[in-house]
Write a protein that binds this DNA or RNA. Structure first.
Lengths: 201, 201
DNA sequence: GTCTATACCTCGATAGAC
DNA sequence: GTCTATCGAGGTATAGAC
């Protein structure tokens, strides 16, 4: 598949493709080696075990998707503008990495507690602050009264769901690949719009 | 685990638990046999192969979740009332089967085309009708202008997402199991409310 | 229908030459 | 660092007695 880059990079990219596609249990070390045009024993030379190779891939996926989102929610300024920025940047990130959300949810089942803890540590403080932001915006009449936890689930879900449920939605809506890509391209604007309407006092 | 019911039922229930928890690749036939307090060769006597046993479990999961949702969207009456009913009944179904959505999304990766086709066949006609309902509601001024495909993704996603992303959301929000269960209990009301506000003209 | 025993294979991991 | 060869565990599936 790929002969560029040094060996470790080739292995990592091949592993990334395999794990994103099949998850930990479904991926095969032999397949990864083949994709990297390399011998299977090299995988162990560089990453010791399948588990460690997976961890490297998973860590990269998390870092690509979580910190940017958290950063936006932690910014200053009016809540509505922030949510709008969030929708645009987050959907943009997901469009650049469309398979990552499903990959993370996939892993969520193998290791719910670990990921829950991780989420608590990294996102916890920002979410707590977000809760405060919402309550203040409500008090000041910027948005209608709403429960912050539900709102957060809404915002994230509206951005992420079309990516993780793509095959089902696309099939159900009778769309082709191009049509659904078009829907994803307009997604950020739609979500921003939807939130603005849903939150107006 | 369970010695009631005839053998085939015991096997099916054990398989259901195992597949829901670990997915096809992660589930083990030996584990299923153990859960059913039965010999491993019995699995093959009743279901031939792991694949066929899985298919039986998957079919049941789809039937538990898809037709009821479709039925609601196909009903008559004003769009907003229908969406409200959808939120309540669908979240109710998911609460009774909280692991099914993740299970289906899981399988979505092993077999995207097949499930896409299935969704197209069963949900396609109803979704097409839903599109018409939305356009009519917009024309008649019942709701503000909105793109039907996006709206459908929103409605389904708002109901489903808190179930599939539970470990991550629960961890991020710093909630315990009881607190998150509470959030899920108020979810239907919240979604109905959120949609009503988001769609008012 | 249910059991035990086992065949057969795939997979992750290692040994050891180069 | 990279290869070939192979080990050993663990997986699905079957054979065959009862």
């Amino acid at each position: 598949m790929n002969k560029d880059g040094d060996t470790e990079d080739r292995i990592f990219e091949a592993a990334q493709a395999a794990f994103h596609e099949h998850g930990f249990d479904g991926a095969r070390m032999a397949d990864i080696a083949r994709r990297a045009s390399i011998n299977q024993s090299m995988l162990h030379y560089y990453f010791r075990t399948k588990e460690q190779l997976f961890d490297a891939v998973f860590r990269k996926a998390i870092l690509a998707v979580l910190p940017p989102a958290i950063a936006i929610l932690g910014e200053d300024g009016p809540l509505l503008a922030k949510l709008e920025r969030f929708a645009h940047r987050y959907v943009g990130i997901l469009q650049a990495n469309p398979h990552i959300p499903a990959f993370i949810l996939f892993e969520l089942r193998r290791n719910p507690e670990a990921i829950g803890r991780l989420a608590g540590e990294t996102a916890g403080p920002v979410f707590a602050r977000f809760r405060g932001d919402v309550e203040r915006a409500v008090r000041e009449g910027d948005i209608r009264p709403i429960e912050p936890s539900h709102l957060l689930a809404n915002v994230v879900g509206l951005c992420v769901f079309p990516f993780v449920a793509r095959p089902m939605l696309q099939g159900g809506l009778g769309m082709g690949n191009e049509a659904y890509d078009g829907l994803l391209r307009t997604r950020a604007d739609h979500v921003a719009d939807f939130l603005r309407h849903a939150l107006r006092p």
